[in-house]
């Protein structure tokens, strides 16, 4: 069965793209989750939805128009946060609603609704060789920049004020990170779709935080969980004829719940041992 899956061209592309997306989303997601910006990815994916609709209406490559909207949305959100007193969650809500409204409006007027569904719910099994290469290139660029700026990003995530005292340019880093996050969202959309992007960003990292001791170790654990869930989800969806995006998310949640249960039970056992030792 496994060999049969691996021999199919569309499955090979799906698995390669899936692994690249899993790595990218989890790496960017760790910083977002720790900065309490878990819904940032959701807002960007909805803005990208508006951009994709513009691409479909104007016959431009939708992923590029989606990326342009997503990057502009991310930069706008970073600017709003730095120069106004609008709360962060309110900027997320504005972008989220605005992007979705624009997308719905354009797609309904153009009669291109069926096409837009593949962006809403993902379509990893029909990803082309060209798409796979584009995903690999974008994922590679994001990963390289994060590795290069790892310490600076960790410092800003830990404490912005202290990072600024140490000479880091917080505004430049914030803008750069906003761009990285928006590209990561575009990359992830092919795997799980606009509506489920935040699951890839949030769930592996929340699970990783339950297990990891150390920033680097947590990032690697989250990446491992993300890759495992993407590969398992794609394989199960092919075998059982399930939608891949939903299957991947269910695998992610299952891993999270299993980890939570294991963690709770080991804590309980330790407390019992401690109690026995005291008495």
């Amino acid at each position: 069965m496994v060999l049969e899956i691996l021999e199919l061209g569309f499955m090979q592309r799906a698995l390669i793209a899936g692994v690249a997306v899993a790595i990218t989303a989890s790496v960017i997601g760790l910083f977002l989750v720790l900065r309490r910006n878990s819904l940032f990815g959701d807002a960007l994916s909805h803005v990208a939805f508006g951009g994709i609709a513009v691409g479909l209406v104007t016959n431009m490559y939708p992923l590029w128009t989606g990326m342009a909207f997503s990057v502009l949305g991310a930069l706008g959100m970073a600017k709003l946060r730095q120069s106004t007193k609008i709360p962060a969650d309110a900027t997320v809500a504005i972008l989220l609603a605005g992007g979705l409204a624009l997308g719905l409006l354009l797609s309904s007027t153009s009669g291109n609704l069926p096409n837009i569904f593949s962006y809403l719910f993902g379509s990893i099994l029909v990803v082309s060789a060209e798409d796979t290469l584009a995903i690999l290139a974008m994922a590679g660029a994001i990963l390289a920049i994060v590795i290069l700026l790892y310490r600076q990003l960790m410092y800003v995530t830990f404490d912005e004020e202290q990072a600024k005292v140490s000479g880091l340019s917080i505004s430049k880093l914030s803008y750069l990170f906003a761009v990285l996050a928006s590209v990561a969202v575009i990359v992830s959309m092919r795997l799980v779709g606009i509506l489920l992007v935040s699951s890839l960003i949030v769930i592996p990292n929340v699970t990783g935080l339950l297990l990891g001791k150390g920033f680097k170790k947590t990032a690697l654990i989250s990446m491992g969980i993300s890759i495992f869930s993407a590969v398992t989800g794609i394989a199960v969806s092919y075998a059982a004829n399930f939608p891949p995006s939903a299957t991947i998310v269910i695998v992610l949640i299952t891993v999270f719940l299993a980890t939570l249960a294991a963690k709770y039970s080991s804590k309980k056992q330790m407390a019992e041992k401690l109690e026995a030792a005291i008495s």
Partner: peptide
């Protein structure tokens, strides 16, 4: 998640 060592290295 950062360890004491990781924070000091910053």
């Amino acid at each position: 998640p950062a360890t004491v060592e990781e924070i000091v290295s910053l």
